[in-house]
Computed example of a mutant assay.
Amino acid sequence: MTATRQENASSGLDRSEPIYVAGHRGLVGSAVWRNLTNHSFINLIGRGSDELDLLDRNAVFEFFAATKPTTVILAAARVGGILANSRFPADFLSENLRIQCNVLDAARQHEVPRLLFLGSSCVYPKFAPQPIKEEYLLSGHLEPTNDAYAIAKISGILQVQAVRRQDGLDWISAMPTNLYGPGDNFAENNSHVLPALIRRFEQARLDGEPSVTNWGTGTPRREFLHVDDLAEALLFLLEHYHEAEPINVGTGADVTISNVADLVARAVGYGGRIEWDSTKPDGTPRKVLDVTKLTNLGWSPRISLDDGVRSTVEWFRNNVGNIRQ
C-alpha cells in the first residue's frame, strides 16, 4: 500500500477538490486561503475557532466525516513571540500537541491522500551550524525560550513521517522561517519581533516619543519571509514535493534585529533614538535556513524585506482598528 500510494502521487492539484485549511483566519492560513483563491481553487473549507474547536477531538473527527477533504493544510497552532513562549510553555506544548494529534488522526482515519504540516524553524537546535539544513533536526539542544513549542512541532513532523511509513499517505512537512505580513499578530505581549517593532515604532511616532527601547542587544541575526511568499511556496510544494523529510522555506538571507529596527523606523517615519535593553533575552544568536532543497525544486521568494515591511506597515495602519493588538 505504501509504494502504490506514493508512487501514484499526482503533481498537480485539482482546482475543484475539497481542501481544508486549518487555521484559515491566522497569519499563514489567511495567506494560504488568498493564494488558493487567486489560483482558482473553488472548494476551500475553513472553520473559525468559534465554529470548530480543534482541541475538541470528537468535533474534529465529526468535521472530517462531514466535509471529506482530499487535501489538508495544517496551519492552525497556538503561536507567540519570545515573551509568550517563555511565560506559557505548558500551554504552548499541550495545546499544539492536541491540535496536531486531533487533525492528523482524523485525516489519517479518513485516509486523506495529501496533507501539508506547517512546522517552524525553531525545531532546529539553538547552536545548529548556519545556514540550517533539514538534516540538523534532532541533532542538539533547543532554544530554551521556545523549547515547548518546538517539541510540539517536532512531534508533528514525526507523526507525518510515521503515517507515511505505516499507511503510505503522501503527507509532507514544511519548515518556514520567521514570517510577517498582513494578518499578523501585533499584540504587545505575545507578538513576534517584526510586528512588535512595527507597533512600537508607529506608537512612538504618534506619541512623539524621543526614543524607543527594544528587547535584547539587537545583534542576533534573523531571516524573514513575507507570508504571501510562503503561501506560494506551500502550493508549489503540494504540487511538486513528495518526500518524507521536512523541507525548509525561507529566503536564505538574514539580517540583524538592529537592522530590522532601523528598517521599520524608516518605514513608519520615526526619527527618534533607537535603544536596546540588554537585560532582556536575545534568543538564538543566529537563525537562517538553508533553502537549497527548495531552490533546486524551482521555487524562490519574490518579495524583498524592504517592500514587505513597507506594505505591512501600510496594512497595519489601514486595519489598526480591527487587528489583534
Rank of each mutant, 00 (worst) to 15 (best):
T4G: 04
N8L: 15
S11T: 12
D14Y: 08
D14F: 07
E17Y: 06
Y20C: 06
H24F: 10
G26Y: 06
W33Y: 09
L36T: 05
N38S: 14
S40P: 01
S40C: 10
I45T: 11
D50V: 06
L54S: 04
R57A: 13
A59F: 08
F63V: 00
P69T: 10
A75H: 02
N85H: 15
N85K: 07
S86Y: 11
F88N: 10
F88C: 03
P89T: 11
A90R: 12
L93W: 08
L97W: 04
R98W: 05
R98G: 06
D105G: 14
Q109S: 11
H110D: 09
E111D: 10
E111G: 05
V112F: 06
F117L: 07
G119K: 07
P125R: 05
I132P: 11
I132F: 11
K133F: 05
L142K: 02
E143M: 07
P144C: 08
P144S: 07
N146P: 10
Y149E: 03
Y149Q: 02
K153V: 04
G156W: 03
A162W: 12
A162R: 15
V163T: 14
G168Y: 07
L169D: 01
S173L: 03
N178K: 03
N178T: 12
G181K: 08
P182M: 07
F186G: 07
A187N: 15
E188I: 11
S191G: 13
V193M: 06
L194F: 01
I198V: 08
I198R: 02
F201I: 03
E209D: 13
E209R: 11
E209M: 10
S211R: 12
S211A: 15
W215P: 02
P220M: 02
L225I: 15
H226N: 11
V227C: 05
L235V: 06
L238G: 01
E239G: 10
E239L: 12
H240D: 05
H242N: 11
E245T: 15
P246H: 04
N248H: 15
V255S: 00
V255W: 00
I257T: 02
I257R: 01
L263D: 03
L263R: 12
A265V: 00
A267W: 02
G269T: 00
Y270P: 00
G272R: 02
E275V: 00
P285Q: 10
D290F: 09
T292E: 13
L294V: 12
L297E: 05
W299M: 05
P301L: 06
R302L: 11
L305F: 09
R310V: 14
S311Y: 08
V313N: 08
V313M: 12
E314C: 04
W315C: 13
F316C: 12
